[in-house]
Amino acid sequence: MIAVFKHELKSYFHSLTAYVFGAFLLAFVGVGSMLYNLQAAVSNFEFVLSFGCLIFVLIIPILTMRVISEERKQKTDQLLYSLPISTTDVVVGKYLALLVIYLIPLCIISIYPLIFKRFGDVYLLTSYGSILAFFILGAALISIGVFISSLTENQGLAAGISVALILLNYYSVSLSEYVSSTAMGTVIALCVLILALGAVIRYLTKNENLAYGVCIVLILAVAAVTYFDVKKFEGLLPNIMKTLSLFERFYAFVNGVFDMTAIVYYLTVIAFFLFLSVQSLEKRRYN
């Protein structure tokens, strides 16, 4: 794992990716703090971060697009499979390298509140609480990016899907207001989602029976709930979209609440997507 970690870190600094990522993040947060803290003279650094997290839509895919897809393209994944290291080592090693690359600009950013403190009243606890949450939010998004990169050998495709997913997640709360909250609308949306899930399962496992099985069981469950208590579905879809939003939970920190459930949620997302990445790599061995 250490070998993969060191190698990955080095290769990121060999290419421009790490620098581009850091530069974008610093520039965006810098512009944010200029607008909020300097021009508008707001003493809350956390508002800058809540503005800054929009840049994740662009820079996380840049960072993660090549992490696994490039191995496939250059056929170096064969080397990784034949070395005496486990797939988990590979994925975790790569992920940790990405976190370090992400941490470097973040370390610079965490000096800002201290600088502002010299010129006025800055509430450091919420500032650093938000920076921590900002870090974990980014870490969760990176884990999603890693997973998407493991699905394809085309970097561009990986980046595109990541941008779309993160953007969708970013706007999911605003979108949820436009989503039908009636029970019938939810049932239809759930069925569509279940079919999409079935398609993903089929693509990942190449096992049609499993995909059909999962679809049928879930659709039957939805049908059963619809039959017995259709009211349960009212407003469910917007709720789901709100609950799944990674960004929405971050705003709690910005508002000065250190939300432990959000931290746990982020960690769960990280573990889940890293697990999926390992499975996606393992699957290549079983195709």
Binding site: S11, H14, S15, Q74, K75, T76, D77, Q78, L79, S82
Partner: peptide
């Protein structure tokens, strides 16, 4: 116990 060279040498080209 094994050293393996696959059909396409798995090399990192920019190293």
């Amino acid at each position: 116990l094994i050293g393996y060279l696959p059909e396409h040498p798995p090399l990192y080209m920019n190293e």
